[in-house]
């Protein structure tokens, strides 16, 4: 009998507690207007199957070529190409195995004999302009020389970011445009070491607790992978959340507080998946 009463009590308590967490949508009348509908002229917009587009600056860049192109014009070095009579030696594996070396000079590469003015200063090679765009990470030198370096990715304005997502499919809570906007902002706040080992296998999952005003209460990395680069990458992902949150009106979390205030319960906890190389880098 006592056991029965205990179970009944437990069940009723569970019911009461669960009711506290429930949100009875059907009992509410929304007084606030829903998020403004974006008017998009579909004749001017190319519709993709997914609107989770990378930033415009990134999407312009092509993936690096595996094998360099044939015969491309090389700027400066071309002029310095050796004339036929001073053809550079074939790539000598190491010193060439001359059949019977008589003396040191005999096995010297042919280029040695042509040096007459060694004191003249060498022209320093033009440093390649750094391009930190991950899409072009690990590009071939021939490709680099050919392409003009892409401009540094700029912080997209809200309009630009919204332009990226034009498919118009509405999620239950967040429009896909706003989802793209948040992702693109966080992508810009996330600075990583692009040459880290196993970077293409790493995903960092960060749980973020957001205040009603869009500020961050806390952020925590909730997964672990057994790669040396995981720790710095996960720290930088968590840092990206805080860096983005400090960007005032440009904060990606601001959009949640401004457009979805009535749905605070739906976004007070975010689960962010940071994929450093998931943007078709290779």
């Amino acid at each position: 009998m006592q056991r029965k009463a205990l179970l009944l009590s437990l069940g009723l308590h569970t019911l009461v507690i669960s009711l506290m967490f429930m949100d009875f949508h059907f009992t509410k009348e929304y007084t606030k207007a829903p998020p403004a509908i974006l008017m998009v002229d579909l004749t001017k917009v190319k519709i993709a199957s997914e609107t989770n587009l990378p930033q415009k600056s990134i999407s312009k860049k092509q993936s690096p070529k595996v094998e360099p192109k044939k015969e491309e014009p090389k700027p400066a070095p071309k002029a310095d190409k050796p004339k036929p009579e001073v053809k550079p030696p074939e790539p000598k594996p190491e010193p060439k195995p001359a059949p019977a070396p008589k003396d040191a000079v005999a096995v010297q590469p042919p280029k040695e004999e042509k040096k007459k003015e060694p004191t003249k200063p060498a022209p320093t090679p033009k440093p390649k302009k750094p391009d930190y765009n991950l899409k072009s990470l690990l590009a071939s030198v021939e490709k680099v020389r050919q392409d003009a370096p892409a401009p540094q990715s700029q912080q997209p304005t809200t309009e630009e970011a919204l332009d990226n997502g034009t498919e118009g499919r509405m999620d239950k809570i967040l429009t896909i445009s706003h989802r793209d906007f948040i992702a693109s902002k966080l992508r810009d706040c996330w600075n990583i070491d692009g040459g880290a080992q196993n970077i293409d296998e790493i995903v960092v999952e960060v749980k973020v607790w957001v205040n009603k005003d869009g500020s961050i209460r806390d952020a925590k990395v909730v997964n672990h992978m057994n790669f040396p680069a995981f720790r710095p990458l996960s720290e930088s992902a968590r840092r990206a959340v805080f860096i983005c949150a400090q960007k005032g009106d440009e904060s990606p979390f601001k959009i949640l507080s401004e457009h979805y205030a009535d749905h605070y319960n739906d976004w007070k906890e975010l689960h962010l998946n940071f994929n450093p190389m998931n943007a078709n880098v290779f």
Partner: peptide, 13 residues
């Protein structure tokens, strides 16, 4: 409630 999940694909370097 399920938490809101967002994927961030790519980063700057």
């Amino acid at each position: 409630r399920a938490e809101l999940r967002i994927s961030i694909d790519g980063a700057k370097s």
